[in-house]
């Protein structure tokens, strides 16, 4: 991590003693049960083993020529175990595997290590970049900070077939996080489903709804070429005109009727979306534009999505 090398052979040996298991005659630290895994994670990481934090700073000192070990000097004896965090939440230690100094009651703010201790950012210039000179960025005109308009429906081409079937207006479809789910995902327990109106309403602006002849609590069908979603709607002035909300996330197990348009069971919030990748974000092989997992690459954007909405009679189940 951060390209650091932290010697930990002695701690590895401790673990062999404490929770050893034999494989082909050699003793290894056991990972047989999850608690053993937890102990290994805590024992071998600089944020919970002060000596490793010290050694990590030692390695960073070598690279940067800056004095850094003072940041871990006072915690070299600290070891946070699973029993410790069960007894009480424990605060992490300052470590160069991250970028903030959190000693002596300082709140974590990123890059304070870089600014105060002159550790470079892990970029081409070692500094923060206004300018990006990867050939791909120059080609796409993103070498300087700039503005590009949002892709419109004629570029996205996902409403061509459905335009003929539509009676409503073309709307921008987004799926923000909802109030009645545990964050973005868990919406289907008894408590969450019995708050507000239950199920997964489609939210419309009041003026838009009026134009489309839709009243609050009507059943509506939301669709484009990608798919279809059917629910009751909530009409609210809180929603901006031209936008339709379906709070993330819906499940097909809860109150999903058939779609009158397609005759089959209507889908869920992602039935409407399609992945679109931005090629400039595929750039690689060059300084900070090298790949790391969950770290770099094109992303699954989903807000540039257009749909039609129409009122329907009570649907079939």
């Amino acid at each position: 991590m951060h390209g650091l090398t932290i010697p930990a052979a002695d701690f590895y040996d401790d673990l062999r003693q404490r929770q050893g298991r034999k494989l082909n005659g050699t003793t290894y630290p056991s990972l047989e049960n999850a608690l053993e895994v937890a102990e290994v994670i805590l024992y071998l990481d600089p944020v919970s083993n002060g000596e490793l934090a010290y050694r990590a700073f030692k390695d960073e000192e070598k690279k940067t020529g800056q004095k850094l070990t003072d940041l871990a000097e006072s915690v070299r004896d600290t070891r946070i175990s699973f029993a410790d965090i069960v007894a009480q939440p424990r605060r992490q230690l300052t470590s160069p595997t991250w970028s903030a100094i959190i000693n002596q009651g300082r709140a974590y703010s990123p890059f304070t290590l870089n600014v105060e201790r002159l550790i470079p950012w892990r970029t081409l210039s070692g500094r923060q970049h206004f300018y990006l000179d990867h050939p791909n960025y120059l080609n796409w005109g993103e070498h300087l900070p700039t503005y590009k308009p949002r892709p419109d429906h004629s570029m996205l081409l996902e409403t061509e077939v459905t335009r003929a079937e539509a009676q409503g207006m073309l709307m921008n479809y987004i799926t923000p996080h909802g109030k009645w789910s545990i964050h973005s995902t868990y919406s289907d327990n008894h408590r969450m489903l019995t708050l507000s109106r239950g199920s997964y309403p489609i939210w419309l602006n009041d003026k838009d709804a009026k134009k489309m002849g839709i009243q609050d609590n009507d059943w509506v069908e939301l669709f484009n070429d990608n798919g279809v979603f059917v629910q009751r709607c909530i009409v609210s002035a809180r929603i901006p005109s031209g936008t339709v909300f379906v709070y993330h996330a819906t499940e097909r197990t809860v109150s999903i009727p058939k779609s009158p348009l397609r005759g089959t069971r209507a889908g869920m919030n992602n039935s409407i979306t399609r992945a679109r990748l931005k090629p400039v974000l595929m750039s690689g092989g060059y300084a900070q534009f090298t790949y790391a997992f969950n770290y770099w690459g094109p992303v699954g954007v989903n807000r540039d999505t257009f749909v039609y909405v129409r009122r329907i009679e009570e649907p079939n189940w």
Binding site: I6, A8, L15, Y28
Partner: peptide
């Protein structure tokens, strides 16, 4: 279910 030792070969690279 065993933690291999490769990580300690040339030091635990993290």
């Amino acid at each position: 279910i065993s933690l291999g030792s490769r990580r300690t070969g040339s030091g635990c690279t993290v």
